[in-house]
Design a protein around this nucleic acid. Structure first.
Lengths: 204, 204, 204, 204
DNA sequence: TATGAATGAGTCTTCATTCAT
DNA sequence: CATGAATGAAGACTCATTCAT
């Protein structure tokens, strides 16, 4: 029994996800989670040292997925700005958004709408703050390669658009878009963004 | 409950605003609000039948301000789509955003970040749902006057941009933008939007 | 209802005293105290903000009685050392010990034997530390009046004898001495102390 | 439970001593003790059937040392009362106290200050009760040899002085006296006692 | 109107002990 | 012998709401 039993852990996480999803972090109760997972209250604390940690464990996949996606686009070795104008950029970007939404809908919902009171209640802020810094660096790097590029864009604008990405995700989740509907929406969104940025950055 | 003393009511609302702003709906306590307002706990319930109602009362001004602003732009007698292309549209739009932010920052912050657990926790959803319907009608009306206009835009896209308006507000609040900074950002945002929509709607 | 109802407070303190006396601070439970006092659990917290405060409230009389008695003997305006050799000193000292024991037996028992875990768990230490300082001052003051007096007594010895006073109380309580038995014991103790100190201080 | 590994037992006792010393019986937790001893929780119960038994095992050395010392002085074959008046008595008595304090400080501290809630919480009472009986016998025996001796001393007084011995130990531990300081204090104490008893018993 | 005492279910968390492995 | 997962009652404390005054 060195390793906490996998299936119980599974059950706990599943139930916790449901409870957090339905009631939100604050109103979900450890008692209920334990009961519905068929586990003694105390045993919950053998798996997770507290409510907040359980919450974070539930959301871990989606949190790391968010950072992973962002790194891919604007990280140290992110793509060239000009690639935005190419057809396959669109396809790959859409694919990335699809990936993050695939199987993470409920988690995203919890993260974005039900985290108040937890240590993740400011995730969007924290994430976008970090992201904004990265994007600025990314801009600077691209400027070296494309001297004509206009990077005189306010930090705020960068920030705003990062947040809009979340807003897109929020909307897709809230309206339960799936399949083709979802794809279409993401495409529209990306086109809108590409067009706007090409214009602002004076590229393409 | 004949004539509730105005100033007591005032004090209650002021204190409640502070508490909700600092602790959020869930963690704010009626006891503290009563105490800080210099009112007996029970008396609070003579003014508001419950926590949620008090919360809504606190937010009433900002809620109606939101609806008012939206009505002005896209309501039954809203402006003509083409007006978007005119210079003064920009000015008036900026002014409207300024108005809603003026004196409502704290309330907006509460409404947008601290409402979880209350009946207003879904305000953004509710608002944008209603707004989307209005905008669609507005589109249809404009189509009658401008047959060349392309209104084949997904409901979702309309919805998304309505939400983005909130996102803008959220950002301005979160980053405590004021004065010229705020004006500049709103202008950037509106330009971005006008450009996008002109393109999508095939007008101007 | 400005003032918390006296009789309920009385009942709470009575029950708390019993519970603390039987189970000790740690094992006594707020739930039980509330139940036995015929009070809702939450209401307990309208009277006392926490377990420790309730405990201190229960012991308040005996705590202040201790300090009062010590002040009388060795305080700023305490008696002259030579008075120790007079007959009436014995009588008055006995009376003082009687007073502190009168009606405070249970409380003393709690304070001295059942306070572990509470903020009063070190009462004896704290008290004797303060008392030692006072006694040293008292010695110094007496030295001025009685130059032949030997005050070269170790701090520790002073401290030890202060603690012995508590030990006497502990014994009387533990063995449930009452009436004449108690008087006799206190007399023996005081004689023993007077004799010892007269010898050590080289007075009388 | 054949041959319990000696070193594991050693580790358990060492860790338990630390934990009981720091947190007291009530607040020390079996889990922590097990963890810090590098032992599975369950295995603890192979060595000791419960928390209380573990506690007693930890304190066993000091408990028996206390009884041993007392036996030596006042046991069936204890010393003659008159020996108290001889110089070497002082030396031997001091040595005995030193012995019991040597290496047992932590244990004494636990026994005397941290045992509340355990079955040893009344050790002092139990010990002194037994001791008092022994001392009375010892007095009676001495009376046969020294008819002039006055043994009309109250049981309580005997008891009290036994307790004072503990008080001395408590003080030495509490004030962390060591080396010469400790010796001096013990000497002062023993002189004080010898003098008092010589007077009361009318010997020497 | 206004008070604040009273309620009691509810919160998260801890812990000695057991037992299947 | 050893493990540590499991138990479940118990811990102190909170809080929206009610109600007698």
């Amino acid at each position: 029994m060195q390793i906490l039993k996998q299936d119980i852990n599974r059950r706990i996480l599943d139930v916790a996800r449901q409870e957090f999803s339905h009631r939100g972090f604050s109103k979900a109760s450890m008692r209920d989670i334990a009961a519905k997972a068929g586990v003694g209250v105390g045993n919950l604390y053998n798996y997770y040292p507290g409510k907040d940690e359980l919450f974070c464990a539930v959301l871990a996949p989606v949190v790391s997925a968010c950072y992973a996606m962002f790194d891919k686009h604007h990280g140290e070795y992110g793509q060239d700005a000009l690639s935005m104008t190419q057809e396959n950029y669109l396809l790959s970007a859409v694919a990335d958004y699809m990936t993050i939404l695939k199987g993470n809908r409920t988690l995203l919902k919890i993260l974005l709408f039900k985290a108040q009171g937890s240590s993740l209640e400011n995730f969007k802020i924290v994430f976008t703050d970090r992201a904004t810094v990265q994007v600025k660096t990314w801009f600077a790097n691209n400027k070296l390669r494309h001297p004509d590029m206009n990077i005189a864009v306010s930090d705020f604008m960068i920030h705003l658009h990062t947040v809009w990405m979340f807003t897109l995700l929020e909307e897709i989740i809230m309206h339960r878009l799936t399949g083709d509907d979802m794809v279409r929406v993401i495409e529209e969104y990306i086109k809108f963004e590409i067009n706007g940025w090409k214009y602002l950055l004076n590229i393409g």
